[in-house]
């Protein structure tokens, strides 16, 4: 009986999915006629998600050979999921639909913050399973997601202030 093996590449597919969902959400919101202020931040975030997709795809190529014995199939993924309390979207379609369904810009920004937070939690888990040379890249992606959150928080403040 061969032992189940964790394929590191599978996890990077999940990271790529998270980025794609983020991208779909940001572009969906821009298409739904976001204001100039929101579009500017969402376009910046969408551009970075595109770059992250490329970075994770490159890491996946390098990690194709990397396997770790598991005591049951899916064990490593369970630990990785443990890092994220919630996944905001499960599919790209769901992300696009949510972008279309948001009530107002404030809700869109709040959802974006949640999306970035759950991505950061997941990538903190990924950092544990990639080579040390790749850990810096994951760190950089995490730092960028933190920057998105900061800009989104500023935007949220501005929108709330506008509403008052």
């Amino acid at each position: 009986m061969s032992k189940p093996l964790f394929q590191a590449a599978e996890v990077l597919d999940m990271a790529i999915d998270i980025e794609r969902q983020g991208l779909a959400f940001y572009t969906g919101c821009i298409a739904a006629r976001a204001s100039e202020a929101v579009s500017e931040v969402f376009e910046y975030a969408a551009d970075q998600e595109r770059r992250h997709i490329e970075l994770f795809a490159r890491m996946k190529q390098d990690l194709a050979e990397y396997t770790v014995p598991e005591s049951y199939p899916g064990e490593t993924l369970s630990y990785l999921r443990g890092f994220t309390k919630t996944r905001v979207f499960s599919t790209i379609d769901e992300a696009t639909c949510s972008a279309e369904a948001v009530r107002d810009e404030l809700e869109a920004v709040e959802m974006a913050i949640e999306l970035e937070q759950s991505a950061i939690a997941f990538y903190s888990g990924i950092k544990q399973i990639v080579r040390s040379s790749e850990q810096d890249v994951v760190e950089e992606i995490i730092a960028e997601e933190h920057r998105h959150i900061r800009r989104l928080l500023q935007l949220k403040d501005a929108l709330q202030y506008q509403d008052d």
Binding site: F6, P69, E75, Y79, F83, S124, G125, K127, Q128
Partner: peptide, 11 residues
């Protein structure tokens, strides 16, 4: 525990 657990627990 199982080997995969260690890096996550360490973190």
């Amino acid at each position: 525990g199982p080997p995969v657990m260690y890096r996550f627990v360490a973190a």
